[in-house]
Nucleic acid binder design. Structure first.
Lengths: 338, 338
DNA sequence: CTGTTAGCGCTTTCAC
DNA sequence: GTGAAAGCGCTAACAG
């Protein structure tokens, strides 16, 4: 491996001069600069980042912690984060937690060891606060994306789950639905809790009376052979919900699979809507009616905010960016039923 | 930041002893080990990876270079790579090249500077050989995935593009199609070239006479307002192809969008098939007939192979793993037309 | 079983 | 404009 010393020797200068050339720092005569640069090129020299960061205490490493890159929402988030990171000269370490606090914890330790400059994280849940505190103790700035943890102070990029839920629910109600089931995620995840609460509030305002059996809790994760709505599906048609609200896209997939198995048609027999788009696929077969969030921006802006913290150009006060959801009406919500 | 010296002082031992505890190396009395571990826990000490790697010349950093995380094929690849990497105690740096040689080149330089232990790469094309040579010069092992570059010696995880193409084409021919268009990617990408050649060979064997206008070149990338098949679509129905073979999933999306705009129905008016699945969405609306490749395995096995190189437990000879495609027949190829 | 010395490859600080 | 010395936080190699 060629080092700064090899360059120095061959260029007849001191290592320090080489360092100055590499970093464009201090003043050097045009002549020596050219000489040094020539040798660097000749020897294909590339500085050792570990040695650099040991001195300057910066790694130009960022990490994106999400629950599953396979979820199209997070795929887009990752694209946004990677784009911004690379544009600013940072590399991005990708971490998938699978909604698992322990994995999250392990990752955080590894990232601290790597001395990443900053972290963009969609936490696994409210208990993630302990992991975030570790970052704080180690003075690693982070921005929270998608999922809120109120007790933590940091930059945040959040969606509007109340608004998104209301839009979707209003749409169903406008179509004449009164028997609407909600399949939501764990209430320890802010997005889940907020969508749940917004659902409750809205049906209260609309004076709808929803059967307690119509509230179902599950995971945000993909799951084979999920049978969470079997008890609804096995009901005689007149007692079934006429519409189902899925709290995220993966839940919608589970629901639609369940319904298909039972030969129940969407939207003719039961309408289905969900939070978060399925990207791509919806491009060529617009099917699911959704509250679509600007996933790319969560990643892009989230990354921009950490970088600003890392480079100390942020205002002292932490910022919270709110990203609006958009109601995208497609086939799965059907036509008015009355 | 607390260092090994802080621990040493507080535990009344030498820094070296602390190092030994951290790395579980050499022998230490149970007593001192416990004492040191207690202090480490008390001070929340986490070793500085930069300092470590400066000595041991290993970073426990791997990189996955792909063209677009947004393509479901690569999303799965990324999941596989991340899973294996983390399982083995490595972190994964994600790089999106957008099929751009220059970006690839920049990434490679950055990764060399970071002294990543290994790289898993789906190269942008045949010219990537220059970038790979840089890795070789810097003694960074890599495995090539999905796309072959014959002149380079390394571990490889490749699909069988001939087989996949033939399966798909045979399926169309069995359905009675004789006027089949091919929309393929740049021939500088091995998968593209192989699918193209397999197509030519197969139609030759089957004695089909395909209009040269039915061969269309485009990118593997997503593209808004793509009009690459307008000249086919504008043909009178009797002169149009009865089926279109898309060389990858994103091309299929472009085609289906184009057809929909012109009110041409798939598969009734024109059948469409493609290489690589669209995952997820196909779960709940099985539509596209495809040659599906085990994307997750490309990432998982590719990562396993580099790690084996990194840890020097591989056989001397480079290995090539061939992953078989699977024909998945769904709606888009329709029913036999004769 | 434990400690000392040197040095990984670079940058900081100060001198000239 | 350039260089010498010291040190970032850790480990290899040796000594005891």
């Amino acid at each position: 491996m060629t080092t700064i010393y090899d360059i120095a020797k061959k260029a007849n200068v001191s290592p320090m001069t080489v360092s100055r050339v590499i970093n464009n720092k201090g003043s050097i005569s045009e002549k020596t600069r050219e000489k040094v640069e020539a040798v660097i090129k000749e020897l294909n020299y590339i500085p050792n980042a570990a040695a650099q960061s040991l001195n300057i205490k910066k790694t130009k490493l960022l990490s994106l912690i999400i629950t599953d890159i396979t979820n199209p929402f997070f795929t887009k988030v990752a694209r946004g984060a990677a784009d911004k990171a690379n544009q600013m000269g940072y590399q991005l370490i990708l971490c998938n937690t699978d909604e698992d606090y322990e994995k999250e914890s392990d990752y955080i330790n590894a990232l601290i060891s790597k001395r990443v400059d900053g972290v963009i994280i969609a936490p696994t849940g409210d208990s993630s606060i302990k992991n975030l505190n570790k970052l704080i103790k180690n003075r690693i700035p982070f921005t929270l994306i998608d999922r809120e943890i109120e007790s933590v102070s940091c930059d945040k990029v959040l969606g509007d789950n109340y608004e998104g839920t209301k839009l979707l629910l209003q749409h169903l109600i406008d179509h004449g639905h009164e028997r609407i089931a909600l399949v939501h995620g764990p209430l320890t995840i802010s997005t889940s809790k907020e969508r749940y609460q917004a659902f409750l509030e809205t049906i209260k305002i609309k004076d709808l009376n929803i059967d307690p059996l119509f509230f179902i809790e599950t995971h945000y994760k993909q799951e084979k052979d999920w049978n969470g709505i079997d008890h609804l599906v096995n009901l005689p048609p007149a007692k079934r919900p006429t519409a189902i609200f899925a709290a995220n896209n993966f839940i919608a997939i589970k629901i639609i699979n369940s319904l298909r198995e039972k030969k129940i048609k969407v939207p003719n027999d039961i309408a289905v809507v969900c939070f978060d788009d399925l990207e791509l696929f919806m491009d060529f077969d617009p099917f699911l009616t959704v509250s679509s969030q600007p996933a790319y921006d969560f990643g892009y802006i989230g990354t921009q905010l950490v970088i600003e913290r890392v480079e100390e150009v942020s205002p002292k006060e932490y910022r919270t960016i709110n990203l609006k959801p958009e109601l995208v009406i497609r086939k799965s919500s059907g036509t008015p039923i009355k």
